[in-house]
């Protein structure tokens, strides 16, 4: 069992934003243990990096944190409420979480401005408010000048910045980023990480970021390592295999 508490400047008695409680996720009738009895706590305002090699269970953990998947055992609490008892996970995802993917996953037929508005359809904003809010977010990520461009007309770095604007569309409590610099050159990657730093520092956005790269993880306030479905507070020893 791994139990970590990652807390950055929060009061101990405050209900954590996320509490992963002894969660396991197995595939192929238990033959593959993607996550094995993992526990983790993330408080509001945290900037957490999860590091691990391919196949270590990073994406499985992110899917569970993002309510895209359900654990086989254990429970994930968000603001003290168990997600297994949440009847509308779609609405929860739309209004509480922001996703940034390695491959951006912008809708190719919509402009940057339209892509940013997509999550807002589940929110309370009207047509005009959606447009205004999306413009503001594009300005925040430095993309207002490309608002009418289709994704294929944007550079990869620009696409990721639009994706970050989209992730912020409904003012989420938690930003989940899966290898956000994985498909970017170093300059674009640095710009994206600067943006994350800015969002965390100036807007207090809670960020959970998955990465291979130590230099990316170094930007976060705390790093945990995942290996063979187990979570660890310390990196594996040099030369030691994940297993």
């Amino acid at each position: 069992m791994n139990e970590l508490e990652i807390s950055l400047g929060s009061k101990a008695e405050e209900t954590p934003l996320i509490h992963v409680d002894h969660v396991s996720r197995h595939y192929d009738d238990g033959a593959v243990k993607a996550l094995d009895d993992v526990s983790l706590t993330v408080r509001r305002g945290d900037y957490l990096a999860i590091m691990g090699p391919s196949g270590s269970g990073k994406s499985t953990l992110l899917n569970l944190l993002g309510a895209l998947d359900r654990p086989d055992t254990g429970e994930i609490f968000f603001n003290g409420h168990g997600l297994s008892r949440c009847h509308d996970l779609d609405h929860f995802r739309a209004m509480t979480l922001g996703f940034v993917f390695q491959s951006f996953y912008l809708l190719p037929t919509l402009t940057a401005l339209e892509n940013v508005q997509i999550p807002m359809f589940e929110g309370p904003r009207g047509v005009r408010q959606r447009v205004e809010h999306a413009r503001g977010l594009l300005e925040l990520v430095g993309m207002s000048h490309r608002s009418q461009s289709l994704p294929m007309k944007l550079s990869v770095g620009e696409r990721q910045r639009v994706a970050i604007a989209r992730a912020l569309a409904n003012d989420p409590q938690l930003l989940l980023a899966d290898e956000p610099t994985g498909n970017l050159d170093s300059k674009s990657g640095a710009l994206v990480l600067d943006l994350f730093d800015c969002l965390h520092r100036e807007r207090g956005v809670t960020i959970v970021l998955i990465t291979h790269g130590a230099e990316v993880a170094a930007r976060a306030g705390r790093t945990v390592w995942i290996c063979d479905g187990h979570l660890s507070e310390s990196p594996p020893a040099r030369g030691q295999s994940c297993g």
Partner: peptide
């Protein structure tokens, strides 16, 4: 399929 999955991941309900 992928685009629809993105919409679902971003919180679009089945009904939408």
């Amino acid at each position: 399929t992928r685009d629809l999955g993105i919409l679902r991941a971003l919180g679009w309900s089945r009904r939408r």
